[in-house]
Design a protein around this nucleic acid. Structure first.
Lengths: 143, 143
DNA sequence: TTCCTTGCAAACGATTTGCATTGGA
DNA sequence: TCCAATGCAAATCGTTTGCAAGGAA
């Protein structure tokens, strides 16, 4: 079992939450994906063997445990991705035509610039904790 | 009538769309707001005089006309804001506790850095057209 | 008249929840 | 045994749409 799986299992264990087959299926599907995935998209990957309600419950449990993060940049649907402590920090390329979302990582010198920008921007009463650069445009397929 | 109103009216006119009282109410409410607003929030501002369906239809018309932009960073709801050609370019402070979203403008030297970062990041097959830095954290009220 | 806009109510669709059952520790 | 996890069906709720009435050009 990969180290990533171990990390997830440990995190869940610490919170008294089981790492069941459904939950593992969700985690591995998201680990394979190159961007956030909706419940429907995950169901395509995993198969109908997982009932809709169980899928949503798994997503909720994993989110509350800090394993998944919801990405809200899509109309009508919530797409989930692995939390950044698992997947690493990244940004998003959002296609304005088909709505697909893809992850991008930026070179660390660039990233540290972004980080300091963020620190500077949110000056006053707002406490910044995380950030994403959402880049909207047209993906290869829709170009 | 303000110049902003004129711009909106002209834009709608070019597309053969009327600038009705409902639509104007939506636009002025968003012009007053300091961040994106959902249908429910707008209805609080405007009053129940506007039926839900008319509100949603107004939002749709204004979005299609390029007057409004949907902000999708909120669970369950779509919040709209004036398009950037009206309101100017800005970023968002999203509170992870209460979900409120506030606009922030960054100094233009900083902004041009961000712009060049974006150009660099989306190198390959993806064509960047716009971007927002979504900064998640805790707002003053929730601190 | 003609077409766009409006309002009400019904329809949609993604997500959530009640409840009885199953399964692991 | 005991409590978390599961599955099905029913319920939610934001949003959309059908259709008939109202209004502007």
């Amino acid at each position: 079992m990969s180290s990533m799986e171990d990390q997830v299992r440990r995190r869940l264990g610490e919170r008294g939450v089981r790492y069941t087959p459904h939950r593992r299926a969700v985690v591995t599907a998201l680990a394979r994906a190159d961007g956030p995935r909706s419940a429907a998209e995950l169901r395509d990957d995993i198969g109908d063997s997982i009932p809709v309600s169980s899928l949503y419950r798994s997503l909720g449990v994993l989110e509350r445990a800090g394993v998944l993060t919801p990405h809200l940049g899509s109309r009508d649907v919530i797409r989930y991705e692995l939390a950044e402590w698992i997947s690493g920090h990244h940004h998003h390329l959002v296609c304005i035509d088909c709505g697909s979302v893809e992850d991008v990582t930026v070179p660390s010198p660039v990233e540290s610039e972004v980080r300091s920008l963020v620190a500077g921007i949110a000056g006053g009463s707002f406490t910044p904790l995380a950030h994403t650069l959402e880049i909207e445009g047209r993906c290869a397929r829709c170009a």
